[in-house]
Amino acid sequence: MQERARTVRSRYAEVEASSYGRSWTTEEIMLGFLGDVGDLAKLVQGKAGVRPRPDLDEALAHELADCLWSVLTLADAYDVDLGASFSSTMDELEEILSGPDA
């Protein structure tokens, strides 16, 4: 997934440079991600019955994938090994959940 996200980001950078004279900064990518999270929130409301639409399941799947692309792109921009970070974070959470107060 990381490699494919990187390839798509590279193509977007070319389009941005052609259209705007430069590619988006990581801050602009983050702002785009925030917009996608807002769209995702509306779709989650739809699943709860508050914002129904006929293509809800497809739109939800698309928006989740769009958000994942943003996370992968930001991780790549900051040289974060997302696989390793995910594993260590899940290990930490599982340790907390199996602790004496769990």
Rank of each mutant, 00 (worst) to 15 (best):
T89K: 15
D66S: 00
S98A: 15
T25K: 02
V37Y: 05
G38H: 02
G21Q: 03
G21M: 08
Q2I: 10
D55K: 01
D36C: 10
T89W: 02
A5S: 11
E27H: 07
Q45A: 15
A102C: 13
G49P: 08
S85A: 13
E16F: 10
E95F: 13
T25L: 03
V8L: 10
D55M: 00
V50A: 13
F86P: 03
V37C: 10
S88H: 15
A41L: 05
D79F: 04
A84Q: 10
A84V: 12
W69R: 07
P52C: 01
D91H: 15
G99Q: 13
L93P: 09
T73N: 02
S70V: 04
S19C: 14
A41E: 06
M1L: 13
A65F: 02
L93D: 11
M90D: 11
W69D: 00
G99I: 10
G21V: 07
E92M: 15
Y78I: 08
T89V: 11
L31V: 06
S88Y: 12
D66H: 05
L97V: 09
C67A: 12
E58D: 11
E27V: 10
G49V: 12
C67P: 01
D36T: 06
L31P: 01
V50W: 11
D91Q: 15
D76S: 14
K42H: 13
A75L: 07
V37H: 04
W24H: 07
D57T: 04
L93V: 15
G99P: 05
T25Q: 02
R9T: 02
S23R: 03
L97G: 15
R9F: 04
T89I: 07
R11F: 04
L56Y: 00
E95H: 15
D76K: 05
S23Y: 01
L97I: 13
A41P: 03
D101M: 05
L60Y: 07
H62W: 06
E28W: 05
S18H: 08
S19T: 07
A102P: 04
T7M: 07
R4I: 13
M1V: 04
T26V: 08
V15M: 08
A61V: 02
V37E: 06
Y12C: 10
A75R: 08
L60W: 04
A61L: 12
A13I: 06
A13H: 08
P54A: 10
V44W: 01
M90V: 14
A5H: 12
G99F: 10
G83N: 08
T26M: 11
